[in-house]
Design a protein around this nucleic acid. Structure first.
Length: 318
DNA sequence: GGCCAGGCGCGAC
DNA sequence: GTCGCGCATGGC
């Protein structure tokens, strides 16, 4: 049987930089292929995306996409998912040369609207693990428990629903080398599945906020300050949230002379950045890492150079 | 082969 | 409330 033809088209995207958005590390299930397309899966649909000037070209595995904000046609979905028409209004305080350079470096960046459940599990898994390992674990869950989708001769897998993931217990995850995250992932998935049992689809943003706040309040879910802020920022429309990790701790100290606990630095950054604190922090985070750690595009470039299937790829050739 | 990775949870203070 | 340590695994 022949696979369905992809849905193709373009959307206008001004002051927008697809590569910054998908290479920044906020998403785990996108990769850049040797053919130049960004390939990934979002909200149960597989996509190929490529930007030329002020247009984003797309191929999609379906013409309509189900989200927590309702069902959308693909062009509408992409504008929503990638926040194409929502350029942030970050203003640089006079004299802050770090933020000015950081913002210039990341011009066109947006926070993607991630699916809440996938975001919750992904960031629980990201704790004290390298990006490649986290991606591998997420892809393992999708391939084991998700639904298979084909797009132009490539196989993709959707992220499993809460009740599917909740079928596994801590021992199951441990057997698959998830380490001490095993019990936490199982506990979190079980809580989400139980809390949303029988809830009519789609589960909306307000309900997801309640679920996420419940996870934060429940011990043993792996959702602490940092992971909770990632969930807020990446999937719950709380663009004023600042996740504080080791890099943010370092840049706060070195560039702004702010020293303290994670919670103290978080409070400082959120007060300073106001409604755009998440963007301010992301600019500084990426810029600081560009200077002191792995570059934004290292992974994408190394993948392009290899031409081999890798853990970075969200898909397999059929 | 040691150090650390986009921290969290728990027990001592 | 805050500080320190252990936690499992794999990259570098």
């Amino acid at each position: 049987m022949r696979a369905a033809d992809p849905v193709e088209g373009t959307v206008a995207a001004v002051d927008f930089h697809l590569g910054h958005i998908l290479a920044s590390g906020q998403v785990f299930r996108w990769g850049r292929d040797v053919d130049g397309w960004w390939k990934g899966i979002a909200c149960g649909t597989a996509f190929h995306l490529r930007q030329e000037g002020d247009r984003v070209f797309y191929r999609a595995s379906a013409d309509r996409v189900a989200t927590c904000a309702g069902e959308m046609a693909v062009p509408e979905f992409l504008r929503w998912y990638l926040r194409i028409d929502e350029a942030p209004g970050v203003r640089v305080p006079g004299g802050d040369r770090y933020l000015r350079r950081a913002r210039d470096l990341l011009r066109g960046f947006r926070f993607v609207r991630q699916e809440p459940f996938e975001c919750v599990i992904s960031y629980i898994l990201s704790v004290q693990a390298h990006m490649t390992l986290t991606k591998r674990r997420i892809n393992f869950l999708a391939r084991t428990l998700g639904r298979e989708i084909e797009l132009m001769g490539e196989r993709y897998w959707t992220f499993p629903a809460p009740d599917a993931l909740a079928c596994l217990n801590g021992r199951d995850f441990r057997r698959h080398r998830f380490g001490w995250r095993s019990e936490r992932v199982a506990t979190a998935a079980r809580y989400v599945a139980d809390t949303l049992k029988g809830a009519p689809a789609p589960v909306g943003l307000e309900r997801w906020r309640e679920v996420a706040d419940g996870l934060r309040a429940l011990p043993g879910t792996g959702v602490g300050l940092k992971v909770g802020k990632c969930i807020d920022l990446f999937s719950l429309e709380r663009l004023d949230a600042v996740p504080v990790d080791t890099w943010v701790l370092k840049l706060a100290r070195e560039w702004y002379g702010v020293v303290g606990s994670d919670a103290a630095v978080c409070a400082w950054a959120e007060a300073r950045g106001g409604k755009w604190a998440g963007y301010v922090n992301e600019y500084l985070f990426v810029y600081y890492r560009e200077l002191n750690g792995p570059s934004l595009y290292d992974r994408a470039i190394s993948f392009c150079a290899s031409g081999e299937p890798s853990a970075e790829l969200p898909f397999e050739q059929v």
